[in-house]
């Protein structure tokens, strides 16, 4: 193996080594640069907390804490302004409750069907449909609720107002179906087949296996999907902002217009509230309340799915 034009790669590598100190500088800097980038997500959280808390404190200088959380009157404009958050809370919770009445049963049944009954072929058709449903922007659902669902409901419920909480609640439910369906399905499909086979081997029907074996085993994943669904409903903005109007009445009548926390924020920011006014600060107080609610929901969901993650 005599090679006249011996390349002597090793010599070249050695020669390069001395000149390429640049590389080792990069090598040392990269972890720091990446760390700084990774920190930005934490700065975002800190930024959110800081802005919300700071302006909320200003708000509570003008409005007593107790008045805010127990007040049933929200009248942000005019001379005798009142800032009670209860009308917004009822709006938020009623719309979320309606949404969950739709999303939980349908989402769960879809999950059962996809995980336990559907053949691979059927699943391959149905899952993309749910993905499309999940990918539709909420503004489109808002349009749909306002221009189609409300007029449709009006035929059956004549006293339904043109803006009401029922219609956006229902549409929000449809929007959340894919989320609950896919998270619950994940939980159910991770139940090992041996458990199903054990029950089927004793002569159980599929329905019985689903009820008595699969759902109990997947319970933590299913519950946490519900909680995440609620959190999503509480934070949803555009559907309610469009279809539920801006009435700040403290009511439980779903045929009437109600305002949610998110819709209130939209209304106030759209109205160019002068910085420094109580109205302006109320934006942050409401947003902070919203943030706390969704954060609690998310933490609960995380706790449930972590704590009860069965080692099958």
């Amino acid at each position: 193996m005599t090679d006249e034009r011996d390349l002597r790669v090793r010599d070249m590598i050695q020669a390069n080594k001395r000149t390429v100190t640049f590389n080792s500088i990069i090598e040392k800097c990269i972890p720091t640069i990446l760390f700084i980038i990774a920190i930005i997500s934490i700065l975002t959280t800190i930024g959110i907390l800081f802005t919300l808390i700071r302006e909320t404190i200003y708000f509570f200088r003008d409005v007593p804490f107790l008045d805010f959380f127990t007040g049933t009157k929200l009248k942000p404009l005019g001379d005798a302004a009142e800032f009670g958050i209860l009308p917004l809370l009822t709006g938020t919770f009623i719309s979320s409750a309606i949404a969950m009445l739709v999303a939980i049963p349908i989402g769960l049944m879809s999950a059962v069907f996809l995980s336990e009954y559907a053949s691979d072929k059927v699943r391959r058709i149905l899952k993309p449909i749910l993905e499309v449903l999940a990918g539709i922007p909420t503004i489109v659902y808002g349009f749909f609720a306002f221009t189609f669902v409300t007029p449709l409901l009006n035929r059956f419920i004549p006293m339904l107002e043109p803006t009401n909480i029922l219609s956006p609640g229902l549409v929000m439910g449809v929007m959340i179906i894919p989320m609950i369906a896919s998270l619950s399905e994940d939980a159910m499909s991770s139940v090992p087949n041996a458990m199903r086979e054990g029950a089927l081997g004793l002569g159980s029907t599929k329905l019985e296996v689903t009820w008595r074996v699969v759902i109990p085993a997947a319970m933590s994943g299913i519950i946490s999907s519900f909680v995440l669904g609620i959190s999503r409903a509480i934070g949803e903005t555009m559907i309610v902002a469009i279809a539920s109007g801006s009435s700040k009445n403290f009511t439980f009548d779903v045929t009437q217009s109600m305002q949610t926390m998110t819709a209130y924020i939209v209304e106030v920011t759209g109205g160019d509230a002068p910085a420094g006014s109580t109205l302006y600060y109320s934006l942050y107080a409401v947003a902070f309340t919203l943030f706390v609610f969704t954060l609690i929901m998310n933490l609960i969901a995380q706790y449930i799915s972590k704590k009860f993650r069965e080692g099958y």
């Binding site: 509480i234 934070g235 924020i265 939209v266 919203l290 943030f291 969704t294």
Partner: peptide, 8 residues
């Protein structure tokens, strides 16, 4: 962060 409402 993924669970924070977009409006926030």
């Amino acid at each position: 962060l993924a669970g924070v409402p977009s409006i926030v």
